[in-house]
Design a protein around this nucleic acid. Structure first.
Length: 441
DNA sequence: TCTGGGGTCCTAGGACCC
DNA sequence: TCTGGGGTCCTAGGACCC
């Protein structure tokens, strides 16, 4: 057995669709899609929906009729549900492989050795079975010596890669594959896989970068692996150079510590066009409240905000305008009233009348842990006033935690919310008791 | 009628300093 | 007529990801 460290990438299959199916088992073999906010785009598809050739990211309205004819069930996105299922999956993974990194809502890298975990393919098959049995979410797992190769192994482990698995595992005397688990540790096998693997399907290589590489005669993952890394660096920068090494099996990307976010964003498209400044201020105050919630949750304070507004760039016949502004706080803050006040000023700065606005957003920037900030930054001239506000806002979040989001809120948010987005097909929050408000997620 | 939202990292270039 | 050069820090924007 080898003591060599390897990566396993665990990826939940069709995650959002799989979450909805847990609670509606009658949909198990049925096509299901999940829609973006405003029920605008298709952002997740079950295998059956993929078989119907419904593309990722497609506008819902273009496929609506086709989907009705094929009895495709469409859900509005329900991030409260997906977030909760995700944390259950991650906690279960952490029990089985403590050395892990949560990479996204539906993916995690595990660091594993044969010494600790025995036969790695069997270990991963067990992980997969457990997640399926405990939570009801199907996963695929790729094993390799680097993150980039583990991503690749994972791509193959998914259903779409079945052809590749068959092709190589059939006439290759190597036990590299079990159901939805694929092992890319063997170098000989790797060469064959890399030869077949498209550049743009490599983690970190977009279509644009892929085209640039084509121009210097690099077409497959194997070409890139064998290329001159300095030359790749001159085209794609250090990021590209790292990928070359990772493809060769030399690990450049380690597990990332779980660190608090460095920025927090909240933005939405409006359910209808918005022209009045007051409505924009209402909307941005509401988004600020949401962003602030996340800020408090990770116990950080923000040093600056960025606020932007824009018209609908798909409406080619309408006058277009977009603008954004970054504003710094005199001192870092986690006070909602200060954030809302600054956001309101930002809208005042960039608002232009006579445009139909479609979207607005706020980003809290340069976040630092609250406890790392020196006392004198928090307690200054108006310490009393700040303390009062803090008490008030702590009371507000307590009320909202217990009685549901937005039970109590600053008047700046408004109560009419004409701008609120549409969300007509949302499933209930089966696993959490947060009162659902359609425009926040 | 209807086209998502939330992140990270890297780089180039400007400002400033000695 | 000559008009440095190197270093650091910061920021906006690009690229990429899920």
């Amino acid at each position: 057995m080898s003591n060599e460290k390897n990566f396993a990438l665990v990826d939940c299959n069709n995650f959002y669709a799989s979450c909805e199916k847990i609670f509606q088992p009658n949909l198990n073999d049925k096509p299901v899609v999940i829609l973006s906010n405003n029920d605008g785009c298709i952002i997740a598809r079950s295998n059956e929906a993929k078989d119907l050739k419904i593309p990722m990211g497609a506008p819902y309205h273009q496929y609506r009729r086709m989907m009705e004819q094929n009895h495709v069930k469409a859900f509005s996105s329900n991030y409260t549900l997906y977030g909760d299922i995700s944390s259950r999956v991650m906690q279960s993974l952490a029990m089985m492989a403590p050395n892990m990194e949560v990479y996204s809502i539906d993916e995690a890298f595990l660091r594993i050795t044969e010494i600790e975990n025995g036969d790695l393919i069997k270990f991963c098959a067990d992980v997969r079975n457990n997640i399926q049995r405990w939570i009801g979410i199907p996963t695929s797992i790729g094993i390799a010596p680097t993150k980039t190769l583990a991503k690749m192994a994972n791509t193959i482990a998914k259903k779409q890669g079945r052809k590749l698995i068959k092709k190589f595992s059939d006439n290759y005397n190597f036990a590299c594959a079990k159901d939805h688990v694929f092992d890319l540790r063997d170098e000989q096998l790797r060469k064959k896989i890399l030869e077949e693997f498209d550049l743009k399907d490599i983690w970190g290589i977009s279509q644009a970068s892929s085209s640039k590489l084509n121009r210097i005669g690099i077409y497959t993952a194997l070409d890139l692996c064998n290329s001159n890394s300095r030359q790749v660096r001159s085209i794609l920068g250090v990021v590209g150079e790292r990928i070359v090494y990772e493809l060769r099996g030399i690990s450049c990307l380690g597990l990332q510590d779980i660190s608090p976010r460095k920025s927090i964003m909240s933005s939405r498209s409006f359910g209808r066009k918005v022209t009045k400044k007051e409505e924009l201020i209402e909307a941005i105050s509401s988004y600020a409240t949401r962003a602030h919630e996340k800020l408090k949750h990770q116990k950080s304070i923000a040093q600056a905000i960025h606020v932007y507004i824009r018209t609908n760039h798909f409406s080619i016949n309408e006058a277009q305008y977009q603008n954004g502004i970054t504003k710094s706080f005199a001192r870092a803050t986690d006070s909602l009233s200060e954030i809302i006040k600054m956001a309101r000023e930002a809208i005042n700065d960039i608002y232009q009348p006579d445009f139909n606005y479609k979207k607005a957003g706020i980003i809290l920037l340069d976040l630092v842990p609250r406890n790392q900030v020196q006392e004198n930054l928090l307690i200054l001239d108006d310490a009393k006033k700040r303390e009062k506000i803090e008490k008030l806002e702590n009371a507000m979040s307590l009320v909202n935690q217990n009685l549901g989001r937005n039970t109590i809120f600053y008047a700046a948010l408004g109560t009419k919310k004409n701008w609120a987005m549409q969300s007509n097909n949302r499933s209930p929050s089966y696993t959490t008791n947060i009162k659902e408000i359609p425009y926040v997620s």
